[in-house]
Design a protein around this nucleic acid. Sequence first.
DNA 1: CCCAAGGTATTTTTT
DNA 2: ATACCTTGGG
Length: 720
Amino acid sequence: MDVSHILDELNENQREAVTASSKYVLVLAGAGSGKTRVLVHRIAWLVDVEQVASYGIMAVTFTNKAAAEMRSRIEALLGRPAGGMWVSTFHSLAHRMLRRYYEEAKLDKNFQIIDSDDQLRLVKRIMKSLELDPKQWPPRQAVWFINEQKDAGLRSQHIDDSNNYQTQILNKVYAEYEVICQRSAVVDFAELLLRSLELIRDNPSIQDHYQQRFKYILVDEFQDTNELQYAWLRLLTGKQTTLFAVGDDDQSIYGWRGAKIENIQDFSRDFPNSQLVKLQQNYRSTGNILKAANALIEQNQSRLGKELWTKDDDGELIKLFTAFNEVDEADFVISHIQKWVKNKGKYSDATILYRSNAQSRVFESNCIEQNIPYRVYGGLRFYERAEIKDALCYIRLTANPNDDSSLERVINHPPRGLGQKTVSVIREYARDNEISMWHACQQFIKGKVLNNRATGLLAHFIALIEAMAISREDRLQDHFANAIKRSGLKAHYTKKEGRDKGQGRSENLDELVNAASEFNYQPESEHRNFNELTAFLSTTALDAGNTNKTNDCVQMMSIHSAKGLEFPLVFITGLEQGLFPHQNSIAEGNLEEERRLCYVAITRACQQLCISYAEQRQLFGQTKPTIPSIFLNEIPSELIDDMRGHRQRWNVTPPGMKQKSRVDTNATVFAIGQLVTHNKFGEGVVINTEGSGKSARINVNFYQSGYKWLIIHYANLRAL
DNA sequence: CCCAAGGTATTTTTT
DNA sequence: ATACCTTGGG
């Protein structure tokens, strides 16, 4: 058999991983070392060489994007569709199992998935009905508690709260939440995993079925698995199962949402006689970038140990820019990008990374002023938009009217006279009688419990949903168009928000109909056991529709969202104590995860890496001096080109600072960044100005005596 | 039912 | 600074 197409383009270690014969294999794949390539080639090896049926292979990822990429690369390498192979996210796989065995999982046939926004709303309502003061008991904290318990595999009944009042209260919310979800026939994200874990664990025949079927399980980004996902994998890994896990402990940056770095660290203990393969040759970055990354991550104590190397040259030094403030920092970054573009490059070569999303503002306004195309990643996704969720809640009700969560959202939206009072009567009645709100509504209409007006309005609402439900048998797009039309949402938004904004919402609703018409329903494979409507609704919950337009523009994103990506030119900004590493992480003692985050950031760069910090930064409305990040000290200075010395000082007002930096006074006009001299304090740099006329003040960072606020009128400053 | 005023928090994100 | 949420008055 000719295996050259699978092995030819691999290095020695990659081949070892792809052809490994051990039952349990852990591949420690450094950044840019060909991790996905190894997974894809491994699967091709199994199918083409070891003659494993596609049907017997399961590949698990965390994101839909990764799953889609993996599947398409597998099919490209095999030269045919990988039918029967399960290549999906944890949640999507769990979901498939639950649709297949909904009865054993004790779920309604038409159960729906709620997203984190729905979950928060639901928890808020429950806490309100339990009369918990939201100031004392923040709903977000309760959501966090519930998800944390589920991720640990615990139901409310398993939790010992006898010694802790706070746990008692939170667990009471959890218990009530479980009841409402079950009655509403909805499951949240963590529930998908927990429910399918319980399904496999409590039904030996089902466990046996999956263990017989999937003899080859492959896991991507293994360092990001949480306790529940790990337990789920172990339940599926039977005596005959081959488990192939790929990950990088140095890139574990999701500890804060439950990822257990221990899962990768303890792999060899939990899976005896496992084979460890390290991929350390990097195909992405220059030598200097890798040296910096290696030196930084070496400061972490708990590591499996790995050092990246490249056949590539050292390349350029890492540029370090010390900015006066965040505006100056943005100006440096953007002008540097301009230079890059003038030379040879494209805008899309460049990415600006930051620790927290709020930092994007300054870069954005600079781009706007200079007419530079840019794109910020990580905003609201399509299916999370309010108007889309509104429409989907109507549609969800047509599939499953018992969904209280959806009913609450739309019963009076757009307003139809069913205000808080009426809704709370319905809610209480449903709760007391242990029925869904939909059933409560029906009983209210028959029983005339409410006054005539409310009864009539309620009957009207019920009739509306029922009328929408009739079109359920139509083509998906017609069903959607009908529901949207009858809901009155478009008119509502146009009236409330005026033409421009309302029109945007209206267009989004049309886009939803489009999405329905383009939906690829696959009853033979992916959507077996799903009807078309349920399949679509599940997709909207599990795959929130990332719009990936690749125009030529500068990209801005948090370091977390940059994981897995690479760019020729990378800026890491805001390297200041408290910002990066973040204050909260320092306080929680999570410095190692912050350092891994910095490692991820550095290893995104292919050719040129620029890092920067500001000497003072505005945060929460206050400008404060900063301390440079300790990570700067951990990068060897011989790798750094410190631009502080040889960057030209401003002799014109930098763009974007015309308003803020100039002061209207008869005295000299000073720009931020300008060098000035003072009779007593000597030379310094203008940091900020404030006020106007004779009371105008100026903030100068003097080289000798530090920061001073001076009244311009009296200070007698001279520009240099 | 809508709007304005005031209080509060403000890391990172996928499913 | 600012965005989000609750609350009170019209």
